[in-house]
Design a protein around this nucleic acid. Structure first.
Length: 567
RNA sequence: CGGGGAGUAGCUCAGCUUGGUAGAGCACUGCGUUCGGGACGCAGGGGGCGCAGGUUCAACUCCUGUCUCCCCGACCA
């Protein structure tokens, strides 16, 4: 490909609306362009990177027996009504109406559609297992899209679904997909970690996320330094503390005017935040309320509370509800005398001399003690987010180190959630109709492109992993006025292409500095610089984008050498 | 949805406080010089200031409405 015919509008300035590195660099390198919030054009270079990821995904999935299909982006409401998600999915589901006034939605995921295929076309256990996938544009009307390709509303996703006669076979497939995903991300050249994950709104019971490790990641993941256990910090089980904390003292109330935040009260009273009990009020789906207690310096993990309380959905109570339940404005809730179910994090078991809200305006209680002052209606559970240094509950010995990650893939064991609600059954060997056991497996293709950049870049631009680079080699003729330079560059370009090495020839009549800057920005793994001085000595200079190392190679045999370096 | 910020040339921004009919750098066009890390000179082209109203002799500047984009949002009990 010639630069002069490539649409690659590189920019010197960072775009004003970009925050993250990948967003800035993708735009600056002329790979994507924003069209509306969370919606982007892919320009040729960006598309090529996207296609690289797709190709790896296809290759690995096809190799383990998956079959590619393509389902519609516009989905009829009926199927979503059948599964119940038409009413439950929420505002992320973009609904539309056609000219006949029929309801449709843009598919944010395709369990309904694929289950519909399965129930129509799969009849017998003999036709199982099946694993169907598609690579397609998805739409989720996110509340707050951000960070370019990281959290778009429209994005490219590979979603796969498998069908089995029983749970054992579904779990076998789950493990197969787990291994396949590991291979896919390895091939992409990414540093990642597979972590146990919450199953979230989709449901199911067994799930791993594939997290690309990057400082800018939005997910916190906890990995044991001793064993192989790693999990989303939301889910990572925290080992129960061995000893209770604090010293006993008499309970008394203190006047804390306008001190509603733990941070403020802690300063006001000169106490550490860890000596506080944080009391949060939640509302269940049916409108009933419950309280959750964590230590002042800890964060509640909503997913844990959800499973401890058995509530399918939980929402933090609004100010009016808090006042009704606690009898005090927001900021002064506490467990003492609080009615209703109270879920308590294990770190508070046996706590003494603690401080909490008094359920009275502008008042806190000090010297609060578990057992003496609260606990009758307490249900103890692991409720908080893991933090660095927490004990690993899995091996019982190690401790957690926290990392930031970008979720690029997830594998789920789904069970019969959709097959049951949508009547997707097959006959088993005994001639009995059984709902299909299902698994589902996703990879954020466009997000993977962004994640690769978050993980691999420098001040000058992108540093593509070989496997994802839009081109393998960029040829930079230092001058477009020098016959020998041009001839050599053209020949190299031609021969590399013939040798199936994707090559970009920067044939623009620009000064060398401009070309070098753009080459660094675009970030192809190898740059072959051809200049008059080098040619006089019969050499071409090859520079690696990742470590900046330079190798001079003879013009004779340059193709073979470059091909070697490129693979 | 709540809070904050911003919409002026392709990009990054200045100009609005104190209304008088729009500017810089980069990019772009032509010519010349230059040519191994974002060159230089000269000469050019391009926007009427998100949109719609209003006030005024006069609005990018003031007022009202509206749209779009960006950032933050249990952390508090």
């Amino acid at each position: 490909m010639r630069f002069t015919s490539l649409l690659a509008p590189t920019l010197k300035d960072d775009p004003a609306d970009a925050e993250t590195v990948s967003h800035k660099l993708l735009v600056r390198a002329g790979m994507i362009r924003q069209v509306a919030r969370g919606i982007y054009d892919f320009l040729p270079l960006g598309l090529r990177a996207l296609r690289r990821v797709e190709a790896i995904v296809r290759c690995e999935l096809d190799a383990v027996g998956c079959q590619e299909i393509l389902m519609p982006m516009v989905c009829p409401a009926e199927l979503w009504q059948e599964s119940g998600r038409w009413t439950h999915y929420g505002k992320e589901l973009l609904r539309l109406r056609d000219r006949q006034d029929r309801d449709f939605c843009l598919g944010p995921t395709h369990e309904e559609l694929v289950t519909d295929i399965a129930r129509r076309d799969l009849r017998s256990y003999r036709e199982l297992p099946r694993n169907l996938y598609q690579i397609q544009t998805k739409f989720r009307d996110e509340i707050r899209p951000r960070f370019g390709l990281m959290l778009g509303r429209e994005f490219v996703m590979k979603d796969g679904y498998s069908f089995h006669i029983d749970r054992a076979d579904a779990e076998r497939e789950y493990r197969l997909m787990f291994d396949t995903y590991s291979r896919i991300f390895e091939r992409c050249g990414l540093r990642f970690r597979a972590v146990e994950a919450d199953t979230g709104a989709i449901g199911g019971s067994l799930s791993h996320e594939f997290q690309v490790l990057a400082e800018s990641g939005e997910d916190a993941i906890a990995a044991c330094t001793r064993c192989s256990y790693a999990a989303n910090a939301e889910k990572a089980e925290v080992r129960a503390p061995s000893a209770s904390t604090g010293t006993s003292r008499a309970r008394e109330s203190v006047h804390t005017p306008d001190q509603g935040r733990i941070e403020d009260v802690a300063r006001f009273l000169g106490l550490p935040e860890s000596a506080f009990i944080k009391t949060l009020i939640f509302v269940r789906e049916d409108g009933s309320t419950l309280a959750a207690l964590v230590r002042g310096d800890h964060q509640l993990a909503e997913a844990k509370l959800r499973s401890a309380s058995g509530a399918s959905t939980l929402a933090l109570a609004d100010a009016a509800t808090v006042e009704r339940v606690t009898g005090a404005p927001v900021g002064f809730a506490g467990p003492v005398g609080l009615a209703g179910p109270v879920f308590v994090d294990r770190a508070l078991h046996g706590i003494r001399g603690a401080t909490c809200g008094a359920n009275r305006a502008d008042t806190h209680l000090v010297g609060v003690e578990h057992g003496r002052d609260f606990g009758d209606n307490a249900i103890f559970a692991d409720l908080r987010q893991a933090i660095s240094g927490d004990g690993c509950a899995r091996c019982g010995e190690g401790h957690y180190a926290l990392h930031r990650g970008i979720e690029v893939g997830q594998v789920f064991y789904l069970g019969t959630k959709y097959s049951s609600s949508m009547g997707a059954t097959v006959l088993d060997a005994a001639g009995e109709a059984r709902p299909l056991e299902m698994g589902c497996y996703g990879i954020g293709i466009s997000r993977t492109v962004a994640a690769a950049i978050e993980q691999s870049h420098d001040d000058d631009g992108i540093i593509w992993p070989r496997a994802l680079a839009p081109f393998a080699v960029e040829i930079v003729p230092v001058s477009m006025r020098d016959e020998a330079v041009i001839t050599t560059a053209e020949a190299l370009h031609r021969e590399l292409n013939a040798a199936r090495v994707d090559t970009l020839l920067d044939d623009r009549d620009e000064r060398p500095g401009v070309k070098f800057k753009d080459a660094d920005l675009i970030g192809l793994p190898l740059r072959a610089t051809i200049g008059a001085k080098g040619l006089a000595r019969g050499i071409i200079e090859v520079r690696r984008r990742d470590d900046g190392s330079v190798e001079e190679i003879p013009v004779e045999g340059a193709v073979a050498r470059l091909r070697e370096l490129a693979t």
